[in-house]
Nucleic acid binder design. Structure first.
Lengths: 251, 251
DNA sequence: ATTATTTTGAGCGAATTTGAGCGCCTTTTG
DNA sequence: CAAAAGGCGCTCAAATTCGCTCAAAATAAT
């Protein structure tokens, strides 16, 4: 295992558990305690975590950090989900997407494709800025601080003027009976418009999102859609969706 | 296996896993470690990945913004110009701005103000993301790679629906006879709309911009406007503008 | 078919990383 | 409060990886 991978897994564990011991990491990652301690020192130098006696803990002010805790949770799963969805996109497609953490993990795969993309998220725009083969359009609108996504009537109107081939959205809750949900009503509404305007809908959701029902409703029921998730999603969780005729892709 | 195919597989593995070791790739692709290392070097040269000891990791494309302060010419002047313009903005104003390097230097001084701002530039949005007191709206539109600004009919339409108090734009060329100019025609046009929609126009231009005439015309003639520049701008350069009744503020 | 060019794999010294050992220090526990 | 336990910083040797050269192999050109 190379250093970068250990660093990533340390941050991922940290995001999940809040604190980690060098001992435990050593056992989990199969590296000596000395190496783990060196890694922790490296990451502490980058302010990605706080070094503590015996291990490390999450930094206090998450906002200013290079590694967002939410981005690091279930990172490996999100990568696989994103890569799988990205690999299935065909050249020439017109894509719409938001800025969820799983959607972000899709971007490395679409960088080599030739397509057009409209997004509400400045993160996505930034990440694809250098990519020659992808034409990026921003919806515009009011900027939400928490997610760096744009919402409101401007975003909505932009989307209504575009014929989208595939809408790819990450959701915070997916439930066969209660539909797709998220935290912010404004974002939910923009996502809903995206779904309405799209010929095809792909949903990215890691296993932790299944059965979750959150306040803001994107879609009250799931109809035609492809759901991408990880192998951590049980058959029992996937079955209700498949009964609705929805394709569930587990990677 | 041909080289292009290996490159493709390496990038695809990287998208899936986030990091890869040369060892693992060698086994998976059936090529020697030496060849894999050469491939990684090639891809690193194209900035498609980051070479690390023992393998490679995904690149982060977010830190290569054109507004890197280190690369900026006349930085000190731009800071003074931006600070002066920012200081003159009153609370409650509705501002429009682009994303020029000088405009970026204005942002620190508007952090503490309470105002609304519409911008074409994702950098501005990103910079003000954490600022509670400033409500940020993005115009949306097609993303220009070089400047990270949005242009086109979407940006234009957003601006046409807003009554702007002050439009603050950085220009690449300012000349009393030939007007305001910049490099990109698309950006020039969006800036023109911004000027039309604004009750007041403030122009930020360091001394190097005076007398410059560039291909894309923002405004063929300068009418009512305030020009902010540095003390490096000579009286001779400022006089023609002042003769037109334009206020030139040198800081 | 033969020659020229490019690509690949292996070998080797240099550089980097890793893991273990050993006093010293911090935390815990009785 | 003192002793024990565990963690830290440090050094050093072993293990890996790197950069480089060179010959074999594959590919392209004549």
């Amino acid at each position: 295992m190379i250093r970068a991978e250990r660093h990533e897994r340390i941050l991922s564990e940290l995001a999940r558990r809040g604190t980690v011991s060098a001992q435990a990491l050593s056992a989990e990652l199969g590296a000596s305690v000395a190496t783990i301690r060196r890694d922790i020192s490296d990451l502490a130098g980058r302010k990605a975590l706080i070094r503590t006696h015996g291990g490390a803990s999450l930094p206090s002010h998450r906002e200013e950090l290079p590694f967002d805790a939410k981005l690091m949770t279930n990172l490996a799963e999100k990568r696989r989900i994103g890569a799988e969805a990205g690999a299935r996109i065909e050249d020439g497609t017109f894509i719409a997407c938001g800025g969820g953490t799983t959607v972000m993990q899709m971007l490395p795969s679409i960088r080599r494709k030739s397509l057009r993309l409209v997004t509400t998220a400045i993160n996505v725009a930034l990440e694809l800025r250098e990519t020659q083969s992808v034409e990026v359009t921003l919806t515009g609108g009011t900027l939400r601080r928490r997610t760096a996504e744009t919402v409101g009537h401007i975003a909505e109107r932009t989307l209504r003027d575009i014929n989208i081939d595939v809408a790819i959205i990450g959701v915070d809750g997916i439930d066969a009976l209660r539909g797709l949900t998220t935290f912010d009503p404004n974002e939910a509404y923009v996502n809903r418009v995206m779904l309405e305007r799209a010929h095809e809908v792909w949903i990215l959701a890691d296993h932790s999102k299944f059965g979750e029902v959150l306040p803001a409703v994107i879609a009250p029921a799931i109809t035609a859609a492809r759901v991408f998730t990880d192998t951590g999603t049980s058959d029992a969780a996937a079955a209700p969706l498949q009964d609705l005729g929805i394709e569930v892709i587990r990677v």
